[in-house]
Amino acid sequence: MANETTESDAAERALPESEDEWRERLTEEEYAILRERGTEPKFSGEYLDVHDDGTFRCAGCGADLFDSETKFDSQSGWPSFFDADEGAVETRTDTRHGMRRVEVLCGNCGGHLGHVFEDGPEPTGKRYCINSVALDFDPEE
């Protein structure tokens, strides 16, 4: 499902080596979500209602994360996907805010994307609930 990244794309998106470099690369809102594990308000995200064919990428590093074929309307207030590209994301337990959830991180840069829940549709039963701010979208040509 993932699009191939060329060597020039990879060179342009070399990962910052410090938080200061991340702050230079990202907008204030992107930094708050990707690096400080923030969350955008429900129903406010740019990609909530995008249903075009294409690839959703990490706004921090450009890595392919989700194919539009896996996007669905969960009515949760955030873009939702039932599957991630193979090896594209990592997960870890998140116990902040008095809850126990599974945090989703970009497998390439470690940026916070959102959370994954076990109440999604078949074939995976997963709902990757992702912040639009953590994503870029490349429409299929």
Rank of each mutant, 00 (worst) to 15 (best):
G77F: 07
T93N: 11
E103M: 00
R37D: 15
D85C: 13
G77V: 09
E30S: 01
K71D: 06
A32P: 04
G110W: 04
I130S: 04
S80L: 03
D53S: 15
D94P: 05
T6L: 14
E118Q: 12
E30H: 05
F81E: 02
E12R: 15
W78R: 03
F117H: 08
L113K: 09
E90P: 01
D49Y: 03
D83I: 01
E46S: 07
D73W: 07
S18P: 08
K71E: 09
T124R: 12
R23K: 15
T55C: 03
G98Y: 13
C109Q: 02
V133F: 10
D94M: 01
S76Y: 01
C106P: 12
V89L: 09
D9R: 00
E69C: 11
E46R: 14
F56R: 10
R25T: 11
G77Q: 01
D9M: 11
Y31C: 04
F72W: 12
T6M: 15
L105I: 01
F82Q: 13
T70A: 13
E103K: 09
S8T: 15
K42I: 14
S80M: 01
E17W: 06
F81T: 06
A134Y: 05
H97D: 08
V116K: 01
A88F: 02
P16G: 07
G120R: 03
T95L: 14
S132W: 02
R101K: 03
P139N: 12
L48C: 08
R101T: 03
C109I: 05
A11Y: 11
G62V: 09
Q75T: 11
L34Q: 02
S74V: 10
D64L: 10
F56Q: 08
E40K: 01
T93I: 13
D136I: 13
F56V: 00
T70V: 05
E24A: 11
F117Q: 07
R25Y: 05
P123W: 02
E12N: 15
F82I: 08
G87F: 13
A59I: 00
N108P: 01
H112Q: 08
R37N: 15
L65C: 06
R127W: 08
S80Q: 01
E24F: 08
A14W: 02
S18N: 03
T93E: 15
R101F: 04
G54R: 06
G110Q: 12
G114P: 02
P123D: 10
H115D: 00
G60T: 05
C61G: 06
L135F: 06
L48I: 00
K42Y: 14
A32T: 03
I130K: 06
P16D: 08
E21Q: 12
E40V: 10
R100F: 03
S18Y: 00
P79Y: 07
D83C: 07
H112G: 03
F56E: 04
G38T: 03
R57C: 15
F137I: 08
T6N: 14
F66A: 02
D49C: 07
Q75I: 09
S132G: 04
E36R: 09
V50P: 06
D49Q: 04
L113V: 10
E141V: 14
E69G: 13
G98C: 12
Y31M: 03
F72N: 02
